[in-house]
Design a protein around this nucleic acid. Structure first.
Length: 732
DNA sequence: AGCACGCCGACT
DNA sequence: GTCGGCGTGCTC
């Protein structure tokens, strides 16, 4: 009898699977990826078959039989991917496998039932009855006439469609069916997420020489000739999407599948629109904001081969696209490709792995590539904007020596905005900080208002009348007086987007101000709605956090401003430079695309910083050359792989002791060439004290394996009981 | 994760 | 004696 090796989908960390079960014939055909309900201890759990073997190491009498098999499952390729991901990112097989299963399958999930659609067609008797003047009510006649018209090639109409506007209802159809005049049947009708087609349908535009060259290189890669991983580097508006579309067309012609990754859900509809207008129903969308039914149905459209292109954020990396030929990673520098809960996978790495397994080409596109990707063996350049316009001039506005009390806008910035106002035009202002002001303190005793659970200051949100913690969500009313000394002289320091919007509303009145940040983006569609209102306005200012620099183009924007451009530079993070460069360069690259050209102002305290200088010069290669040299000197990625281990717990002393214990254990078990840094304290978050260890690895997989095994051994230890461990491979 | 097993002190 | 505290280990 065949044996199924099953990985149970429990959340337990220390489960030593897989477990063997006998496979009786009554279960039908069970293979890798099948989902079974199995007896496990004293309960029943859902599990995934990860292997089918002829025999087990255990004697047959110790093996149980599965209770039942679920209909939907994953493909063997995806099972391998899920297990690889679990190992590589130090998670559990169950968590890796859950990512690749059909939506709703897994722990406690419910698979939505397929939606059924009723179809009606006229029978021969029905046609005869209509022609021969049989006794028919007016609605019955109406229905039969609609069904016998020749504009329905199949002779069949969906009941919903037939009923609409005709006064015909289910009752009418049932009567006709019982008289044998109409035949009814049901079929599954997938729920489809709404798609707004964007761009011209049908004929693709003529590609530039550089676009054709890029497409041809990608096509060669799909065919197995040349490097399979290609970076497509080009500023906003240089036509990267047309290259993706052309490459996708070639892939489909070779009967292979395509995955298109986009950074976030908010940007998905645009990309879907572009692809759907070119490829229609062959395009499917997967993301977590779809309804359960839509997600299930899109998944099955891909699995069945009806759809061969899947567009979506991170989770689209697991779409069951068969015979993958091409993967596109759009805006490859975007940090949202990294998942921030367990398993902390990087969708870019996941699709690279898939592509390597199925001989697919990977195209990563960006105007501001990461140092990692810059070193890919093949780089394709799109040097010009499709509209032929030059990139705008970027002016650095030096804030050094200016008092913070003179307001958030430098006189030069204020002048530029005044010009926009008098000309009745549009501007975008980016400030990467939410709220009214980031600090509140007592003017008399100096008390600072901090979060009770996190070691950070609370941010004033004036409209809401609250002080809020941007890390844990804690909120309290803005105090009227200092609780320590009773003084009513509380001082707000600095400006966030809320205050900036208010300042701008005064300076540029009567032009409208549109604020875009996560405080104004509440609920689905709000993001798009704010952008739509700005787009349709005659004139005005869009102000917000980094959201304003992403995705959308407004040709009539004549001025873009970045305030406090070096704020991101002050983060204690080796990616601070890269992030700052991307933020400034992305906004600058989106400006000046209309007839009036454009102007970009960058206010900063650090005008000499490499990231800011190069962004102002639109010089990605220059920035990357310097950044790569720095990374090499410090042996940071891409010259090493990092693994971050974080320990958190309610007691600082316990966390400290545990971190020392983990360090000692790792010192003895890591590969020789892995460097171990820390444990270093981190600021308290949600009432939990934190310490972190950082590993610099020569070889990621080996270090991840050693880390996983060491931590599994340690997790049984009593001194780690109240401490939570989290491992982040390739932290961003 | 559950859940049983087993080894301890406190009680009807 | 036995009820239940939780530390330890197993689940095919």
């Amino acid at each position: 009898m065949a044996i199924a090796k099953v990985e149970p989908l429990t959340t337990a960390r220390a489960l030593r699977g897989p477990f063997d079960y006998r496979l009786p014939a009554r279960l039908g055909s069970i293979g890798v990826g099948s989902v079974l309900v199995v007896p496990f201890g004293h309960r029943r759990v859902v599990g995934v078959v990860v292997e089918v073997a002829a025999s087990s190491e255990l004697p047959p009498e110790r093996l149980a039989e599965p209770i039942e098999a679920l209909e939907a499952g994953a493909t063997p390729e995806l099972v391998r991917l899920g297990l690889w991901l679990a190992r590589e990112y130090c998670s559990t097989p169950a968590r890796g496998l859950e990512l690749v299963l059909p939506p709703g399958v897994g722990r406690g999930g419910r698979v939505p039932a397929p939606r059924l659609e009723l179809l009606a067609s006229a029978t021969e008797t029905g046609r005869a009855a209509l022609a021969g003047g049989a006794r028919l009510g007016p609605r019955q006649r109406e229905a039969l006439e609609a069904l016998t018209g020749d504009h329905h090639p199949a002779g069949e109409l969906a009941a919903n469609e037939l009923e609409a506007g005709r006064g015909v209802d289910r009752q009418t159809l049932r009567r006709l069916a019982s008289r044998g005049l109409v035949s009814l049947r049901t079929r599954e009708a997938p729920r489809r997420p709404p798609v707004v087609q964007l761009g011209a349908t049908g004929r693709p535009p003529r590609l530039s020489a550089q676009q054709r060259h890029a497409r041809d290189a990608i096509v060669a890669a799909i065919a197995g000739g040349g490097e399979s991983e290609l970076l497509l580097h080009g500023v906003t508006g240089s036509g990267k999407t047309e290259v993706y579309l052309a490459a996708a067309r070639e892939t489909l012609e070779r009967r292979r599948g395509v995955i298109v990754l986009v950074p976030e859900i908010a940007l998905t509809p645009q990309a879907v629109g572009r692809f759907a207008s070119r490829f229609g129903d062959r395009v499917a969308v997967l993301h977590s904001r779809l309804s359960a039914g839509e997600r299930r149905d899109e998944w099955h459209r891909i699995r069945s081969g009806e759809a061969t292109i899947c567009v979506g954020p991170r989770s689209a990396a697991f779409a069951p696209v068969g015979d993958l030929g091409l993967v596109v990673i759009d805006e490859e520098h975007d940090p949202s490709y990294k998942q921030d809960g367990d398993p902390r996978y990087d969708a870019r790495e996941v699709v690279r792995r898939r592509a390597a397994e199925s001989g697919a080409a990977v195209v990563a596109g960006s105007a501001t590539p990461r140092p990692e990707t810059w070193l890919w063996p093949r780089r394709l350049e799109l040097e010009e904007r499709v509209d032929g316009r030059a990139l705008p001039e970027v002016e650095l506005v030096d804030l050094r020596g200016r008092s913070a009390r003179s307001g958030p806008l430098h006189p030069r910035t204020a002048d530029a905005l005044a010009e926009v106002r008098s000309a009745g035009l549009k501007a975008i202002v980016l400030l990467n900080r939410r709220g009214w002001s980031p600090f509140l303190s007592c003017g008399s005793c100096g008390r600072a208002f901090g979060c009770p659970r996190c070691d950070v200051s609370l941010v004033v949100h004036r409209r809401a009348g609250e002080l809020r913690c941007h890390h844990c969500g804690h909120a309290e009313p803005i105090p009227g007086a200092c609780p320590d000394c009773g003084s009513v002289g509380l001082a707000r320091h600095g400006a966030g987007t809320e205050r900036l919007a208010s300042v701008l509303a005064e300076t540029i009145a009567p032009l409208p101000v549109f604020r875009l940040d996560s405080d104004t983006v509440t609920g689905a569609g709000a993001h798009a709605e704010i952008l739509r209102r700005f787009d349709q306005a005659e004139a005005g200012i869009l102000v917000g956090t980094q959201m304003v620099a992403k995705g959308h183009d407004f040709p009539d924007v004549v001025l873009s401003v970045v305030l406090d451009a070096d704020a991101t530079l002050r983060f204690p993070d080796f990616r601070a430079e890269e992030r700052t460069f991307a933020l400034v360069a992305q906004l600058a690259g989106r400006s000046g695309r209309g007839d009036r050209g454009g102007r970009v102002l960058v206010q900063t305290l650090a005008p000499d910083a490499a990231a800011i200088r190069h962004a102002a010069a639109h010089d990605a290669p220059g920035f990357l050359a310097g950044e790569l040299a720095r990374r090499r000197a410090l042996s940071y990625p891409p010259f090493s792989s990092l693994v971050r281990i974080e320990l958190t717990g309610p007691d600082a002393g316990v966390v400290h002791a545990a971190s020392e214990r983990v360090r000692d254990a790792l010192e003895g078990s890591l590969p020789r060439d892995t460097e171990l840094l820390g444990p270093a304290p981190r600021f308290r978050l949600r009432g939990r004290h934190r310490r972190q260890l950082l590993l610099k690895a020569r070889e990621r997989t080996a270090t991840a394996t050693a880390t996983r095994e060491t931590l599994e051994r340690l997790s049984a230890l009593r001194e780690l009981r109240s401490v939570a461990l989290s491992v982040d491979v390739d932290p961003q």
